[in-house]
Protein backbone atom coordinates (compact mmCIF):
# COMPACT_ATOMS: atom_id res chain seq x y z
CA UNK A 1 0.00 0.00 0.00
CA UNK A 2 1.20 3.46 -0.81
CA UNK A 3 1.90 5.49 2.28
CA UNK A 4 0.07 8.59 1.14
CA UNK A 5 0.29 10.10 4.60
CA UNK A 6 3.95 10.72 3.84
CA UNK A 7 3.18 12.75 0.72
CA UNK A 8 4.39 16.30 0.91
CA UNK A 9 0.92 17.74 0.19
CA UNK A 10 -0.64 15.80 3.02
CA UNK A 11 2.17 16.75 5.32
CA UNK A 12 1.73 20.37 4.37
CA UNK A 13 -2.01 20.32 5.07
CA UNK A 14 -1.80 18.37 8.30
CA UNK A 15 1.47 19.52 9.77
CA UNK A 16 2.80 22.81 11.08
CA UNK A 17 4.45 23.82 7.82
CA UNK A 18 1.35 25.15 6.06
CA UNK A 19 3.31 27.10 3.44
CA UNK A 20 5.22 24.02 2.36
CA UNK A 21 8.59 25.70 2.53
CA UNK A 22 10.23 23.59 5.22
CA UNK A 23 9.62 20.22 6.85
CA UNK A 24 6.56 19.49 4.74
CA UNK A 25 8.51 19.62 1.50
CA UNK A 26 11.65 17.87 2.70
CA UNK A 27 12.44 14.42 1.30
CA UNK A 28 14.10 11.74 3.37
CA UNK A 29 17.13 12.12 1.12
CA UNK A 30 17.53 15.82 1.73
CA UNK A 31 16.77 15.31 5.45
CA UNK A 32 19.59 12.84 5.76
CA UNK A 33 22.09 14.91 3.80
CA UNK A 34 24.98 16.12 5.82
CA UNK A 35 27.48 18.72 4.74
CA UNK A 36 30.70 17.10 3.59
CA UNK A 37 32.42 19.63 5.76
CA UNK A 38 30.95 17.98 8.85
CA UNK A 39 31.93 14.41 8.08
CA UNK A 40 35.49 15.30 7.13
CA UNK A 41 38.32 13.76 9.13
CA UNK A 42 40.55 16.77 8.85
CA UNK A 43 40.49 20.40 7.79
CA UNK A 44 43.68 21.84 6.37
CA UNK A 45 44.56 25.51 5.85
CA UNK A 46 45.36 26.43 2.30
CA UNK A 47 45.38 29.27 -0.21
CA UNK A 48 43.61 29.53 -3.56
CA UNK A 49 46.00 28.59 -6.39
CA UNK A 50 44.49 30.78 -9.12
CA UNK A 51 44.93 34.54 -8.95
CA UNK A 52 47.14 36.69 -6.75
CA UNK A 53 44.46 37.93 -4.38
CA UNK A 54 45.44 34.96 -2.24
CA UNK A 55 42.09 33.98 -0.76
CA UNK A 56 42.24 31.69 2.25
CA UNK A 57 40.92 28.18 1.81
CA UNK A 58 39.85 25.37 4.11
CA UNK A 59 40.46 21.94 2.63
CA UNK A 60 38.21 19.18 3.96
CA UNK A 61 39.74 15.71 3.84
CA UNK A 62 38.06 12.37 4.38
CA UNK A 63 39.76 9.00 3.98
CA UNK A 64 42.81 10.65 2.44
CA UNK A 65 40.74 12.38 -0.22
CA UNK A 66 39.72 15.99 -0.67
CA UNK A 67 35.94 16.17 -0.29
CA UNK A 68 35.45 19.92 -0.24
CA UNK A 69 37.30 23.22 -0.45
CA UNK A 70 35.76 26.34 1.03
CA UNK A 71 36.73 29.91 1.79
CA UNK A 72 38.42 30.61 5.11
CA UNK A 73 36.36 33.14 7.08
CA UNK A 74 39.36 34.06 9.24
CA UNK A 75 41.38 35.47 6.34
CA UNK A 76 41.71 39.26 6.51
CA UNK A 77 42.14 39.27 2.74
CA UNK A 78 39.12 37.28 1.67
CA UNK A 79 36.89 37.00 4.79
CA UNK A 80 35.62 33.61 3.68
CA UNK A 81 34.82 34.44 0.09
CA UNK A 82 35.96 32.57 -3.01
CA UNK A 83 35.19 33.46 -6.62
CA UNK A 84 34.04 30.80 -9.13
CA UNK A 85 37.62 29.68 -9.74
CA UNK A 86 38.52 29.31 -6.10
CA UNK A 87 35.19 27.55 -5.48
CA UNK A 88 35.93 25.10 -8.29
CA UNK A 89 39.45 24.32 -7.08
CA UNK A 90 38.45 20.94 -5.63
CA UNK A 91 38.09 19.80 -9.23
CA UNK A 92 41.75 20.59 -9.84
CA UNK A 93 42.44 17.71 -7.50
CA UNK A 94 39.62 15.37 -8.47
CA UNK A 95 39.24 16.13 -12.19
CA UNK A 96 38.64 12.95 -14.19
CA UNK A 97 40.84 14.22 -17.03
CA UNK A 98 43.79 14.90 -14.74
CA UNK A 99 46.89 13.08 -15.95
CA UNK A 100 48.51 10.99 -13.23
CA UNK A 101 51.09 8.96 -15.12
CA UNK A 102 54.13 9.96 -17.11
CA UNK A 103 53.53 10.28 -20.85
CA UNK A 104 56.35 10.04 -23.36
CA UNK A 105 56.53 10.96 -27.02
CA UNK A 106 59.62 9.73 -28.80
CA UNK A 107 61.17 11.87 -31.59
CA UNK A 108 58.99 11.72 -34.71
CA UNK A 109 56.48 9.57 -32.80
CA UNK A 110 52.79 9.84 -33.56
CA UNK A 111 51.40 8.67 -30.21
CA UNK A 112 52.05 8.93 -26.48
CA UNK A 113 53.73 6.01 -24.78
CA UNK A 114 54.02 4.94 -21.16
CA UNK A 115 57.24 5.55 -19.28
CA UNK A 116 58.31 4.81 -15.76
CA UNK A 117 58.78 8.00 -13.66
CA UNK A 118 62.21 7.01 -12.44
CA UNK A 119 63.40 6.31 -15.98
CA UNK A 120 61.90 9.57 -17.19
CA UNK A 121 63.75 11.70 -14.63
CA UNK A 122 66.95 9.84 -15.39
CA UNK A 123 66.58 10.43 -19.12
CA UNK A 124 65.92 14.11 -18.47
CA UNK A 125 69.06 14.37 -16.34
CA UNK A 126 71.09 12.87 -19.21
CA UNK A 127 69.65 15.31 -21.69
CA UNK A 128 70.30 18.31 -19.45
CA UNK A 129 73.92 17.28 -19.07
CA UNK A 130 74.42 16.71 -22.80
CA UNK A 131 72.63 19.84 -24.04
CA UNK A 132 74.28 21.99 -21.41
CA UNK A 133 77.67 20.86 -22.61
CA UNK A 134 76.84 21.15 -26.30
CA UNK A 135 75.89 24.83 -25.97
CA UNK A 136 78.41 25.77 -23.29
CA UNK A 137 80.18 29.10 -23.63
CA UNK A 138 83.15 30.11 -21.56
CA UNK A 139 83.61 33.49 -23.23
CA UNK A 140 81.79 36.04 -25.35
CA UNK A 141 83.17 37.37 -28.65
CA UNK A 142 85.42 39.76 -26.80
CA UNK A 143 86.89 37.11 -24.59
CA UNK A 144 84.98 38.05 -21.47
CA UNK A 145 84.07 35.18 -19.24
CA UNK A 146 80.44 34.06 -19.50
CA UNK A 147 80.39 30.58 -17.93
CA UNK A 148 76.93 29.89 -19.29
CA UNK A 149 74.92 27.64 -21.54
CA UNK A 150 72.16 28.63 -23.93
CA UNK A 151 71.28 25.02 -24.70
CA UNK A 152 68.15 24.79 -22.62
CA UNK A 153 65.51 27.11 -21.22
CA UNK A 154 62.82 27.02 -18.58
CA UNK A 155 59.44 28.72 -18.41
CA UNK A 156 57.22 28.71 -15.36
CA UNK A 157 57.06 29.70 -11.73
CA UNK A 158 54.08 31.96 -11.18
CA UNK A 159 51.84 29.03 -10.28
CA UNK A 160 54.50 27.41 -8.09
CA UNK A 161 55.66 27.87 -4.52
CA UNK A 162 58.43 30.22 -3.46
CA UNK A 163 60.45 27.24 -2.27
CA UNK A 164 60.12 25.63 -5.69
CA UNK A 165 61.14 28.74 -7.56
CA UNK A 166 64.08 29.08 -5.23
CA UNK A 167 65.40 25.59 -5.95
CA UNK A 168 64.77 25.93 -9.68
CA UNK A 169 66.77 29.14 -9.96
CA UNK A 170 69.48 27.74 -7.73
CA UNK A 171 69.92 24.56 -9.73
CA UNK A 172 69.69 26.26 -13.11
CA UNK A 173 72.17 28.93 -12.07
CA UNK A 174 74.66 26.31 -10.90
CA UNK A 175 74.23 24.60 -14.27
CA UNK A 176 74.96 27.89 -16.01
CA UNK A 177 71.49 28.04 -17.58
CA UNK A 178 70.31 31.60 -18.07
CA UNK A 179 67.12 31.49 -20.14
CA UNK A 180 64.99 31.07 -17.02
CA UNK A 181 61.66 32.82 -17.26
CA UNK A 182 58.09 32.79 -16.03
CA UNK A 183 54.69 34.32 -16.55
CA UNK A 184 55.79 37.59 -14.96
CA UNK A 185 57.43 38.38 -18.31
CA UNK A 186 54.33 37.48 -20.24
Amino acid sequence: MVDFLGWPLVRQLTGADRLGRGAAAQSPRSRDLEPRTRSADRVVDSVCPFCAVGCGQKVFVKDGRVVQIEGNPASPISRGRLCPKGSASKQLVTSPTRVTTVRYRRPHGTEWEDLDLDTAVDMIADRVIATRRQFWRWEDEQGRRTRHTTGFASLGGATLDNEENYLMKKLYTALGAIQIENQARI
Partner: peptide
Amino acid sequence: GTEVFFLPAATHVEKSGSFTQT
Protein backbone atom coordinates in the same frame (compact mmCIF):
# COMPACT_ATOMS: atom_id res chain seq x y z
CA GLY B 1 61.94 15.54 -33.84
CA THR B 2 61.09 16.89 -30.38
CA GLU B 3 61.17 14.27 -27.64
CA VAL B 4 58.41 15.13 -25.18
CA PHE B 5 58.23 14.14 -21.52
CA PHE B 6 54.93 14.89 -19.81
CA LEU B 7 55.38 14.67 -16.04
CA PRO B 8 52.23 15.04 -13.95
CA ALA B 9 52.41 17.58 -11.13
CA ALA B 10 50.97 17.85 -7.64
CA THR B 11 48.17 20.33 -6.94
CA HIS B 12 48.27 23.08 -4.34
CA VAL B 13 46.75 20.81 -1.67
CA GLU B 14 49.15 17.93 -2.36
CA LYS B 15 52.25 19.79 -1.22
CA SER B 16 53.12 22.36 1.39
CA GLY B 17 54.70 25.64 0.50
CA SER B 18 54.20 29.38 0.31
CA PHE B 19 52.68 31.68 -2.27
CA THR B 20 53.34 35.41 -2.29
CA GLN B 21 50.19 37.26 -3.20
CA THR B 22 49.80 40.61 -4.88
